[in-house]
Design a protein around this nucleic acid. Structure first.
Lengths: 348, 348
DNA sequence: AATCTCCGTGGGAAGGTTCCCACAAGCAAG
DNA sequence: CTTGCTTGTGGGAACCTTCCCACGGAGATT
């Protein structure tokens, strides 16, 4: 390999191998109609010179960049990092690459990044929309796939999310199995649609189960450890529940702290079930039993859907991926740690 | 805004505003030598038509893509996610974007991604090298900045990492302040250079402090919670140490479990100090007191250094960023939680 | 023997921008 | 009045590839 490989063009390779630039281009892009002879000569010249095809020029002419955008709230958040990882894995398999932007839950940033994204001519984008009236989004020329709970505000766009209802059901089934009865609920921000879905699913399942759902205990709090701890303290004041189901892991972890501070034991006195699958839930003591959202899979599927849409597929579906139950130590054990998976749902 | 904005070119804008494409280009790139009149007309035409400059063509001609690569082991790992976030923040400020690749600690993937990276004509790249004989790396045409502990194997390339020695010192100073004496050490994978540096720093500081460093207790284990728990169990068999300093947070957390399981209290019986700053260390009970690596800053600085190098700066330095002490509950308190910062070092 | 089809190949245009150079007009200095 | 400099402008080349079309030769078909 020579040093100035960076400045070589297919024309140089054409000269070196004694064919035309067209033929070089054909060899490089793996076209069929090239003689063995020519292919060999070109390949040799490429190897010998260390030539790298200029993707920029290629993209300009072909209109394909091989890049997709990923617009998420925050890559430093474990959930979104997992989503990103899934998308990247799928992208790598298709020789594509992923351009990641953080919206920080800020509509203005979302807008700006969306612009940057279209401007850099990505082939498509996966976005978790934070804005309600996402005009920029719907007007956008780029093929889009939505992820996250807010996706369903845009029924016209394909999306992939986690099946909250199925997850809740999975957890509740586990509770009846352990004969713990109806759980008290710890829920976060009342404005999020996620809250409504969570509570709704519990009510529905409970009613079918014959639970006294009108007496369902429900404690609001901020979506953090402290929020969970405070909410749990308030809950405890109204009597010690046998089991608590938190709408997210951070609150569940906070609840665990509160239980400990009240001189109670988990899972003996109070059992706790979380919802999310944050890595942090692994390290608590006891480890938090929780419903895990299929974060990595969400990223992977989103890329696959996007890939189909880019390829011209007109009716790319909405997907709802199943959550799984990961058993650790905050529920009375049946037979030790294990994972129970649900089944997927696909709707068009 | 019209709908077919995607297919507009500066030539259309030129026609619309009655100037030449050169003038449009000048206005768009903010050149000085344009009359107010022309600037206004072009701006208006751009607004009215919803024109977006094609970054691809721009890049092809100018040789600048406004993109940098980031090659890290795993974006789903909290440390690297923080690094990525820092790099992205800095990039966003300079209107650049970041292309992230995961090497999974695999030299072969690293090589492939490095190729993809140069091929897509990024302006430069930040990489955490996993391979020892990184020939692909040094031969690379792209401006490079290295991050992580393995960076110093390439003294000819600029790099940024965390100042382990300073971090260890910060922790040990805290221990002498609390009068806890010389800690027992929990260390991970013996093959990593990081281990040597960690132990070395403790020995050095201890000697200066007059500690009996020849009697330093040192327990090896795997770099995980389980590894930490096992190592701590073994350590406890040889007698209960007053304080344990783990080379990473996962092991520290495992140690905390082991202490609990032995019927001991932390920090009363055994004090524990971690090293990393993993988010998971926040949620243990008690919260883990630890030395935090400046992960986000590493990403940010790395981008800044890279930016300088791209701009043509010949002697971009090596940087070693200071760790900080974050007080939670596993050391006997002085006066409640707080953060102690160190000072930065920069070497050329 | 003449025509048709297929295959491998080459040349030129196109993709949308920036960069370089030339040019005209205005003004100051000789 | 000429010369020189500055300022704003325009046209064309260049960046490097892919795509389209045309062409010649070989083999098959009429």
């Amino acid at each position: 390999m020579t040093d100035n490989a960076a400045s070589l063009t297919i024309i140089d390779i054409a000269r070196l191998s004694g064919v035309s630039k067209s033929t070089v281009s054909r060899v490089l892009s793996g076209a069929e109609n090239v003689s063995e002879e020519a292919r060999r000569k070109v390949t040799e010249a490429v190897e010998a010179s260390g030539f790298r095809r200029n993707e920029l020029a290629r993209s300009l002419r072909s209109g394909r960049t091989g890049m997709v955008g990923l617009l998420i709230p925050d890559i430093a958040n474990p959930f979104w990092a997992e989503v990103a990882r899934g998308a990247q894995d799928a992208a790598t398999e298709e020789m594509a690459s992923v351009l990641i932007f953080n919206s920080d839950w800020d509509p203005e940033r979302e807008r700006r990044h969306l612009m940057a994204l279209t401007q850099s001519r990505v082939d498509g984008a996966i976005v978790n929309p934070v804005q309600n009236g996402l005009d920029e989004l719907s007007r956008s020329q780029v093929p889009l796939v939505l992820i996250g709970s807010s996706a369903e505000r845009f029924p016209e766009l394909p999306s992939v999310g986690s099946d909250i209802t199925q997850g809740v059901q999975l957890g509740l089934e586990r509770l009846v199995q352990a004969d713990l009865g109806m759980p008290a609920l710890l829920v976060g921000d009342p404005h999020r649609t996620a809250r409504e879905r969570f509570v709704g699913a519990v009510r529905e399942f409970g009613a079918a189960q014959g639970w006294p759902v009108e007496g369902l205990r429900l404690q609001d709090g901020h979506y953090t450890i402290e929020g969970g701890r405070d909410a749990m303290k308030r809950l405890l004041q109204g009597g010690v529940p046998r089991v608590v189901f938190a709408a997210n892991d951070m609150m569940a972890l906070g609840a665990l702290h509160a239980v400990r501070e009240a001189g109670l034991n988990c899972p003996e006195d109070v059992a706790i079930l979380g919802f999310d699958g944050t890595p942090a839930a692994e390290v608590s003591m006891p480890g938090l039993t929780t419903i895990m959202k299929p974060s990595r899979d969400i990223g992977r599927r989103a890329f696959e859907l996007l890939s189909r849409k880019i390829a011209g597929d007109e009716d790319v579906p909405h997907m709802s991926l199943p959550c799984s139950l990961v058993e650790r130590g905050t529920l009375p054990t049946r037979e030790g740690p294990r994972v129970v998976r649900g089944e997927g749902r696909t709707a068009t």
